[in-house]
Amino acid sequence: MRKALLAGLLLLAACSSPPPQAPPPPPPPAEAVLGQTVVPGSKSPSGHLVPDVVGKNHQQAQDTLQAAGFYRLEEEDATGKNRMLIVDRNWVVVEQIPKGGTVLDPKETVKLRSKKLDD
């Protein structure tokens, strides 16, 4: 009797099909990535995403923007004292125009408004 029961269980296990698998999830929608051009004809405008550099030291902000493809950079003393930014690492970005996340043609200018660390 045990042999018959064991044989029946083995036969049942061999004949049963695996449970149906769920189809793989669809790929996530394409999103623009910093420094990459958005594909023309897509729902997104053409250009590069401007990285958010507010709060970074001025030198690091420039490096980040250049790595994303933006080389036309302007800088300004945000305190209104019209000082020149000579040692960029002594300054911190308090505002950028346009804001981070904006899609912009890399030929356009990004303005960084910064203040000295000890202001």
Score class of each variant (00 low, 15 high):
M1Y: 10
R2N: 04
R2D: 01
R2M: 05
K3Y: 05
L6D: 10
G8R: 01
L10W: 05
L10R: 01
L11H: 04
S16W: 14
S16H: 03
P18G: 04
P19I: 03
P20H: 02
A22C: 02
P24T: 03
P25I: 05
P25T: 01
P25Y: 03
P26G: 00
P27G: 00
A30I: 13
A32N: 08
L34R: 04
G35W: 09
Q36P: 09
V39C: 08
P40R: 14
K43V: 11
P45W: 08
S46M: 15
G47K: 05
G47R: 06
V50H: 11
P51T: 10
P51I: 11
P51E: 09
D52T: 07
V53R: 12
V53H: 12
V54T: 15
N57I: 06
Q59E: 11
Q59K: 07
Q60Y: 14
A61Q: 15
T64C: 13
Q66W: 12
A67C: 14
A68Q: 13
G69I: 11
G69Y: 15
F70H: 06
Y71A: 03
R72P: 07
R72I: 12
E76T: 05
D77T: 01
T79W: 14
T79F: 12
T79N: 10
N82A: 05
N82E: 15
M84I: 07
M84R: 00
D88V: 07
D88F: 12
R89C: 04
R89S: 14
W91Q: 06
V93R: 13
E95Q: 08
E95T: 11
P98N: 00
T102M: 06
L104R: 12
D105S: 13
D105T: 10
P106F: 04
P106T: 05
K107C: 05
V110H: 02
V110C: 02
K111A: 03
K111M: 08
L112E: 07
R113S: 05
R113P: 00
S114L: 04
S114N: 05
S114Q: 06
S114K: 02
L117Y: 10
D118N: 03
D119W: 14
D119Q: 08
